[in-house]
Design a protein around this nucleic acid. Structure first.
Lengths: 224, 224
DNA sequence: TACTATTTTTAGATTTGTCTAAATTTAATA
DNA sequence: TATTAAATTTAGACAAATCTAAAAATAGTA
C-alpha cells in the first residue's frame, strides 16, 4: 500500500523488537529510549504509523503492531541480518563491527538485490550473532534458546547467540572465542556471586553473571 | 569539514559530471534537467553547497566545483562504480539493471566498507559500463576513448564503454553482445546515413549512427 | 479519595529539501 | 538601443522528522 520511509522502517523494527524480545508493554517512553529520541517525536510518529495501518494505536493506551507492520519489520530484519552475514563472511569484518553498517544497508530498497544476496550467501539461517534470519515470507527458525547463566555445572552447551548486541560486549566475547557454534562446558558455578568457570577447547576462564546472562545456549548433542 | 547529506552528494556528483563530460557551462537549468527537479530548488541548493565551499557560485554566473567538492564527488563515483561491479560480477545482475541499486548503495557511508569491497573485488579499474573507478585518492585511468562512429571501415576496435547509460540503450547492446572488452570490426560504413555493418565474433549486424555514436572504443592491438 | 508524580500528548518552532508563482537579471533580436 | 524572450532568483508554502516547553491524562500513594 504505502512505501515506508527509512525512519518509519526503523520505528517499526524497534516496535517489533520491543513487542517480542522485551517483557514490558510497548509504550511511548520505551520506544523513545530505544530510539534515542523524545517522547514527543514518538507520539508524532505513532500517529503516522497508525494512519498507515502498520500499528494499532490509541492515545495513552500503548501500541500493538499489526500483521502489515510485522511484515515490514521482518523485511527490514531480514535485510539487516543478511547484510551482517555478508559483512562478516565475505568482507571479513568482525561480528562487533557490522551492526552500524547493516543499519544503513538494510534500507536499500531492492527486493531482487536481497534475494540474490541471500542466494549468494547460501541461504543462511542465522546471522553472525546467532539471530535467525527471516525468509521472504517472514518465517524464521526459533529453537528455544536459554541463557548460559541458567546452565548447570558439569554440563556441555553450544553457544547459539547473545542478548546484548553492544560492540563492547561482542568485542569482549570475541577475545575469549565465545562465538555462536562454539562448545562450552561449565566446570564450576560459584555460590557466592553466581560467576562460573567455563572450558572452551583447551582454555578455561571465569565469566561473571553479567556476562553469562547475555550468552544464549542450547544443549550439546553429540550427533547433528 | 562538513558531512554531506545524500542529497548534497547527488548534486555534487551531477555538477562534477556536467563539468567534465558535458561541453556547455554548468548552469542552474542544466543541473535542474539532470536531476529532474526545478531551477528554484537548484538555486536553493547551490547556496548551501557554496556555503560549505564545495562549489564556487555567484548569482546568475553559474557554478564551478572546488577541489573539496571534487573530492566528495569522486568518493561517491568510486562507491557507485564499485557497487556496480559487485552487482554484476558477484550477484550476476545484467549491466543494464545495476544503476538504480548503485544509486542507493553509494550513499552508505562507511569508508572501511568500500575499502574492503574494493579488495574483495580485486581492485577493479573499470565498472561494467567501462567507466573508470577512482582510487581512494580520486585518481583514475582515462585512456583516451573515442566513439565508434568515428571508426574507419576495415579497422578492428575494442569496446571500452558507452556514453548513453540508459537501461534501454544498455539492454539493446546486451542483445548483440556489445559489451566492454568485446572486439568489433567495421565491415562497411554506409555513405547515405553513416550507419555501419560491424562484425562481432561470427555475427554481423547493422548499427545506426545513433547507436555507434554512443559506443566508446580503443584501437585493437594484438598483444596486451 | 485526593494529591502528587509520571507518562503522554499538544502546541509551536526548526531544519532539509522541495514546490509554484512572481520578480529580477541576463541574453537575444528587431 | 529598446523590447521581448529566456534563465535565474526570491518569496512564500509544504511535508517529513525532529525538538522544547506546556498541558492533559494516567498511575501511585498517603
Amino acid at each position: 500500500m504505502y512505501q515506508p520511509t527509512a525512519t518509519e522502517e526503523n520505528y517499526l523494527k524497534t516496535i517489533y523488537h520491543l513487542s517480542n524480545t522485551g517483557i514490558k508493554s510497548v509504550n511511548t517512553s520505551s520506544i523513545a529510549t530505544s530510539m534515542e529520541t523524545t517522547a514527543a517525536s514518538v507520539t508524532d510518529m505513532l500517529r503516522k504509523l497508525s494512519d498507515k495501518e502498520w500499528i494499532n494505536y490509541e492515545k495513552y493506551k500503548g501500541v500493538k503492531i499489526t500483521r502489515k507492520g510485522e511484515k515490514v519489520a521482518l523485511g527490514i530484519i531480514r535485510k539487516h541480518r543478511l547484510w551482517e552475514v555478508f559483512l562478516t563472511n565475505i568482507l571479513e569484518f568482525e561480528w562487533d563491527e557490522v551492526h552500524h553498517m547493516a543499519e544503513e544497508l538494510e534500507h536499500v530498497s531492492s527486493e531482487e538485490l536481497i534475494k540474490r544476496l541471500d542466494t549468494f550467501l547460501g541461504h543462511p539461517k542465522f546471522d553472525p550473532h546467532g539471530d535467525p534470519i527471516p525468509d521472504q515470507t517472514g518465517k524464521m527458525e526459533s529453537h528455544d534458546k536459554f541463557s548460559l547463566s541458567s546452565g548447570e555445572a558439569g554440563e556441555k552447551y553450544i553457544i547459539t547467540g547473545v542478548t546484548d548486541h553492544s560492540t563492547l560486549f561482542l568485542k569482549h566475547l570475541r577475545k575469549y572465542g565465545l562465538l555462536p557454534g562454539v562448545t562450552v562446558s561449565i566446570a564450576e558455578i560459584m555460590d557466592y556471586d553466581k560467576s562460573m568457570l567455563v572450558k572452551v577447547n583447551k582454555d578455561k576462564f571465569h565469566l561473571s553473571l553479567e556476562v553469562s546472562k547475555n550468552i544464549l545456549i542450547k544443549k550439546y548433542v553429540s550427533a547433528k
